[in-house]
C-alpha cells in the first residue's frame, strides 16, 4: 500500500509534495496514484517509437510538470533530463532513458497497487 513512508523510500520529497497539498496526506497519495497512471507515459513511448520528437517533448514536458508538483524526485529527475534533451531535439538513442523512466513508473504503480 502506498504510504508516506513507502513513497519516501521510492524517492520523493514528501514534505514538499505534502506542503503543496496543504498537508492533506490522503489527497497527496491519491494524486500520486493518478500521476502513476498518467497517460503521458504511453504517449511518450509511442512518440519515441515513431521518432516524433515534438510529440515526445510535449508528453515529457507534461509529465515533468506533474512529477515536479508532486515532488516525485525519483521520476522527476530522469523525466526532466529527457525533456531537456527532447527540447534540444538531440538525435540520440532515447531508449535507455525511457526504459529507466518506465521502470521507475512501474515501481510506483506497484507501490500503489500493493495490498
Amino acid at each position: 500500500m502506498l504510504t508516506m513512508d513507502t513513497l519516501c523510500a521510492f524517492g520523493a520529497d514528501t514534505e514538499e509534495g505534502l506542503g503543496r497539498c496543504m498537508n492533506n496526506e490522503a489527497f497527496y497519495l491519491r494524486l500520486v496514484g493518478l500521476a502513476a497512471k498518467d497517460g503521458s507515459y504511453e504517449a511518450l513511448r509511442a512518440a519515441l517509437d515513431q521518432g516524433d520528437l515534438t510529440a515526445a517533448f510535449e508528453a515529457a514536458h507534461a509529465l515533468k510538470g506533474v512529477l515536479g508538483n508532486l515532488s516525485l524526485t525519483a521520476l522527476y529527475t530522469p523525466v526532466s533530463e529527457l525533456t531537456e534533451l527532447l527540447r534540444a531535439r538531440r538525435e540520440m538513442d532515447y531508449a535507455p532513458l525511457l526504459s529507466e523512466i518506465l521502470r521507475r513508473r512501474d515501481a510506483l504503480l506497484a507501490l500503489c497497487e500493493e495490498g
Binding site: C21, L31, L34, G65, N69
Partner: peptide, 13 residues
C-alpha cells in the same frame, strides 16, 4: 490544464 493532477492541486489550494 490538461493534467488532472495539476488541476486538482490548484483546486485544492
Amino acid at each position: 490544464d490538461d493534467e488532472a493532477v495539476n488541476r486538482e492541486l490548484l483546486g485544492l489550494m
